[in-house]
């Protein structure tokens, strides 16, 4: 099962929902990795005939099953960054009433949600569902660099190389959690890394 039960947390951490098919003429689905399972769960021939599906496999093998749903448009992107220009182009033409479905990792959903909000679609038009990896997208508070898919705490900033601990604090604007130097008060004293939710 690709569903992860998030433990209770502080108020800035996002809470993800469960997708359900909605009425409407136009539907945009953006999914990565195991997010494919959430799409498969709600897909009906009628819904998919009105859906543009943007999918980033991240090493999974759901593509054939998604294509078999016969979406009106299907795009497979090698990474979110690669898909981003296309997502922006699609949103440029978006009309009021477009229904948006985001599913998969937190990092992808958070970033895509920003794109959707930027073009002025109301948050009520966006549904989300977390599936798959509970890895986090982290911003180093010191150098501001983003490290994607962080699974352990502490971790090494992929930009400045400091050892950072993972704060629960989440910024929707950055679609990232905050990383803070773990050994700032005792240089070199690094706790053994463990899984973020362990």
């Amino acid at each position: 099962m690709s569903k992860f039960e998030f433990p209770k947390s502080i108020a800035s951490r996002p809470v993800w929902g469960t997708l359900e098919p909605r009425q409407g003429e136009h539907h945009l689905m953006i999914a990565d990795a195991e997010g494919a399972e959430a799409v498969l769960d709600i897909a009906t021939p009628d819904l998919m005939a009105k859906t543009h599906l943007i999918y980033i496999p991240k090493g999974t093998d759901y593509v054939e099953r998604l294509q078999a749903l016969n979406p009106a448009q299907f795009y497979e992107g090698p990474s979110y960054e690669a898909a981003l220009q296309r997502i922006r182009r699609v949103l440029e033409d978006a009309h009021m009433g477009l229904q948006v479905y985001l599913t998969g990792t937190e990092g992808m959903m958070g970033q895509a949600m920003n794109e959707v909000m930027t073009v002025g679609l109301p948050h009520t038009a966006i549904q989300t569902e977390h599936r798959g990896s509970a890895a986090r997208r982290m911003q180093c508070v010191h150098c501001k660099g983003i490290t994607e898919d962080v699974e352990v705490d502490p971790f090494v900033c992929s930009h400045c190389g400091l050892n950072l601990f993972v704060r629960d604090h989440y910024s929707r604007r950055l679609a990232a959690y905050q990383g803070v130097r773990v050994d700032a008060e005792d240089h070199g004293n690094l706790p053994e890394p463990k899984g973020i939710y362990e």
Binding site: I10, A11, S12, R13, R167, D168, H169, Y170, S171, R172, R173
Partner: peptide
């Protein structure tokens, strides 16, 4: 960009 509850979350 955060709201009152979000920035006080920690």
């Amino acid at each position: 960009g955060m709201n009152f509850f979000e920035w006080h979350a920690p």
